[in-house]
Design a protein around this nucleic acid. Structure first.
Lengths: 215, 215
DNA sequence: ATGTCCCTACGGGGAATTACCTATAACCAC
DNA sequence: GTGGTTATAGGTAATTCCCCGTAGGGACAT
């Protein structure tokens, strides 16, 4: 794990959370670790800690094929937890997308955290299985619509949402190329469903239409 | 849940398990429920029990889109467990593929089973995330190869493997049509990588080649 | 065993979607 | 401003889907 600094960093206020972030026993609390954009948090094959919580910023979880193809299995925003593993080692890579603050929670010797981790694992499992439907059976527009609806929900259901990740990250999350992602954004814009305020900031003009497109 | 009979059924011997099936506290043991081919075990939106274990037969877990498109997120073979949910209701459908025997494990009042369920949930999470890579970034041959390698591992690594599910199930699991699945099977056969003993029974002639194809 | 029926799987051709490649445009940091 | 990165756009190519018809395998009765 590449911790660029372990000193305490002033955390900026979190974006509104539809599901309030989990809180854990203070004795387990670790200082905030800071990761600059693109920094690895852990790598496939590394020994697994227990779990991580995003304080601010955003994280991508991904896996690679030998020829470089990449599948991002999840994004994690402020307040969300990730990184728990079944075995002793990580099966995926985790990287900071932007400047990101992470808290690492470790098991106190002998403590049984399964009671706290199980709901997190089950939530992640449901999320992953729902994403399987998107990747396996939805077309490009449906995929992007589902992604935007999900991001909007996780940012409190506001009209204006921030996309902390690049088009390439979005493509690798949705199983599309950046060109297709870009074209779908343009199509949604022409239909008046979304407005592109800037590259990483969009406004959802017709939430119902977007919801319908995601099926 | 559609339990066609709750009477005890003579369970046939399980196929060899690379990972021995979990065993649970006998006080929680429920009688074996029998489901004929195609029978629903639970449906999306139903109240969730705790979890289920396949005694014999096979189960498919899936989700539907409004227009009927289906994504199977997992198959479960003899000895495997499934059906634990984050919330109070099921998010997916579960059906018996063939004649199948299932044990239902319920939480004893006040008992905390998270210690037993967490490893199962984490294993399922890793499986689902690995499947995301297949659906998002692999082509038809790679998908089928990955599927066959997985099925072979779960059946003890033998050369001859049984596919309890139809081509349509395989297609809906891999995000392909039955035609494409069929064509890939034919291509693999022509290459001498597999032999089709019968429709539901194949022999892996070149396991290394298959492994390489799955990347 | 053998024949028949029926369901499932296989195969071919055209169509649609998306990927790949190249070029241009927009954005951002310095 | 200016340079470099990232996103958008268009054309072509490849993959896979969709629709059709045919073939094959298993179950059952004879």
């Amino acid at each position: 794990m590449h911790a660029y600094t372990t000193s305490r960093i002033e955390a900026q206020s979190r974006s509104p959370q539809p599901n309030p972030p989990e809180t854990f026993h203070p004795a387990l609390l670790q200082p905030l670790n800071f990761f600059p954009a693109g920094a690895g948090i852990y790598a496939q094959g590394e020994k697994a800690g227990v779990f991580y919580q995003v304080e601010f910023g955003a994280v991508r979880i991904y896996r690679l094929l030998a020829d470089g193809r990449r599948q991002i299995s999840a994004f994690h925003l402020a307040g969300e937890t990730f990184g728990f593993e079944g075995g002793a080692t990580h099966h995926f890579f985790a990287e900071a997308i932007n400047a990101t603050g992470i808290r690492v929670f470790r098991i106190a010797a002998g403590a049984d955290m399964s009671h706290q981790l199980l709901p997190l694992a089950l939530k992640g499992l449901t999320r992953a299985q729902e994403h399987l439907l998107v990747l396996g059976r939805q077309n490009a527009i449906e995929r992007v619509a589902a992604f935007l609806v999900d991001m909007a929900e996780r940012q409190g259901g506001l009209r204006k949402i921030e996309l902390p990740m690049s088009r390439m990250d979005i493509g690798d999350y949705l199983g599309l190329t950046i060109e297709t992602v870009s074209r779908v954004f343009t199509r949604l814009k022409k239909k008046g469903v979304i407005r592109l305020i800037s590259l990483r900031s969009i406004e959802i003009a017709k939430h119902d239409a977007l919801q319908n497109m995601s099926e």
